[in-house]
Amino acid sequence: MRKFVIAAAVALGLAATPQIAKAAGGVDVPSQSWAFEGVFGTIDIPAAQRGLQVYKEVCASCHGLSLMAYRNLAQIGFSEEEIKALAADYTVMDGPNDDGEMFERAAIPSDRFVSPYANEQEARAINNGAYPVDLSLIIKARADGANYLYALLTGYREEAPEGVDLMPGMYYNEYYGGNQIAMPQPLYDDFVEYSDGTQATVSQMAKDVTYFLKFAAEPSHDERKQMGIKVIIFLLVFTGLAYASMKKIWADVKK
């Protein structure tokens, strides 16, 4: 009985955490099914590759991904040559050289993703005061991040509902806190052309870019779960043995 109460108390305490998240975020977002869910879940590699394309062709014009290096893309199946070529499309500031001057050079795999703006002030100046956040950690930095991002990207409505006064330069989004968002709808059907023949619908692109950003937020995701399974199996055996040992040792103690 006592044990049950304590277990219940701990469980209650744990269960309260998502409530807190809810209380902070406000809006409920619908849940999608994701390949990385669950104990055996992994990042969907083809989706993440398509997601990179969406990021590059759509998001990257405003949003940085400053914690990711080009070399990280090897983990979602890009070859060294592809990564080199991809990096070389970007220019980074390096230096100073022997003359004391900064110079530009093509990015290499060990560089971090080049951000579209030099700093937050420049980003705000160009975007009417709004700051397009860095997307490196966006999935971890929002409650229920993957579902939230998908909902946000697919949550734009042409017209605000009756009675909602949109402020100038704002757009209506069902899932953004307060419903008014400074980012215009980023995705439209067939905005990008996938090389693997996948139909680039808005929801497809939203899903793909979410996979990519899930990977970006936690490149160790797959490794973590795979190691976890081994650790749990080991511990189950160890704990079982310890239990049997304990029973044997305690057998001679009279209650």
Partner: peptide, 12 residues
């Protein structure tokens, strides 16, 4: 041994 078993459960 009892603490070892408890540790195992905790580590799980």
């Amino acid at each position: 041994i009892k603490d070892t078993f408890g540790l195992g459960v905790f580590l799980l």
